[in-house]
Write a protein that binds this DNA or RNA. Structure first.
Length: 234
DNA sequence: CAGGTC
DNA sequence: CCTGG
């Protein structure tokens, strides 16, 4: 698949040379995935990890490995035991009410939230995103993450600021000066799908990794400005 | 301002 | 709008 992507896009080919150990797209449990990305909006990885681990404590204890306690991610019913105040105390901020609201919305689904989420698998991507966006705290970006990482929607493109940068830099430069409006969200995902096809979400994942200041990439090949030893930007 | 959403 | 860097 990397070869196909590299053939389709010189940018991908260049980046693929420099990522260490490859990259993988998880197929997560939908409930776990949804609540994790519900924590992710306007937020950084470190705090997201903290928030997620505080939720996990409400799941069954699995064991201790290498000094770390592991918990099964809590079911929707288990999550419903957490109050908004508890979540705020755990540092969720305004996302606390999103978690409580999404738990409630899922519980009200006929057949239960797990079943409802699973039923999205056989729908078209646009419908999946539309349905997920009915949940409080879930917008197009979070919905796309859940679709890609847990609901088999391999061509879902989670458009955040980084992906927007990549897209306007390489694929739709005519929009370089535009703001990331909802209308343009589909322009971005269309561009990725046109370039990479039905597994565009997988290609996007690698490009995204390349955009981050991550040890994964050995070479600062992203369009970001870098500094050399003389402190000159290039 | 950060891997958005209301 | 919460909160931390």
């Amino acid at each position: 698949m990397w070869q196909d992507f590299s053939f389709s896009d010189i940018r991908f080919a260049e980046l693929a040379q420099h990522v260490d150990g490859g990259a993988r797209v998880l197929k997560q449990n939908p409930v776990e995935c949804l609540f994790q990305f519900l924590c992710s909006s306007n937020n950084n990885i470190k705090r997201i990890e903290k928030m997620v681990s505080s939720m996990e404590r409400f799941g069954d204890f699995l064991g201790n490995v290498g000094g770390f306690d592991f918990y099964k991610f809590p079911s929707i019913d288990r999550l419903s035991c957490i109050s908004e105040q508890q979540l705020r105390d755990a540092g969720f901020g305004y996302r606390a009410k999103f978690v409580v609201g999404t738990v409630k919305a899922l519980q009200e689904k006929p057949g239960g939230g797990e079943h409802w989420l699973d039923s999205l698998r056989k729908m078209e991507l646009c419908s999946v995103v539309r349905e997920l966006c009915t949940l409080p705290g879930v917008g197009p970006k979070v919905a796309s993450c859940v679709a890609l990482f847990s609901l088999d929607q391999h061509h879902a493109i989670p458009v955040d600021t980084h992906v927007w940068q990549i897209a306007t830099r390489y694929y739709i430069p005519e929009l370089a000066d535009a703001k990331l409006a909802p209308k343009l969200f589909s322009r971005v995902s269309d561009a990725f799908v046109a370039k990479f096809g039905k597994y565009a979400g997988w290609a996007q994942t690698l490009l995204f990794i390349g955009e981050l200041p991550s040890p994964k990439t050995k070479k600062p090949t992203g369009g970001k400005k870098c500094k050399n030893d003389n402190n000159e930007t290039y």
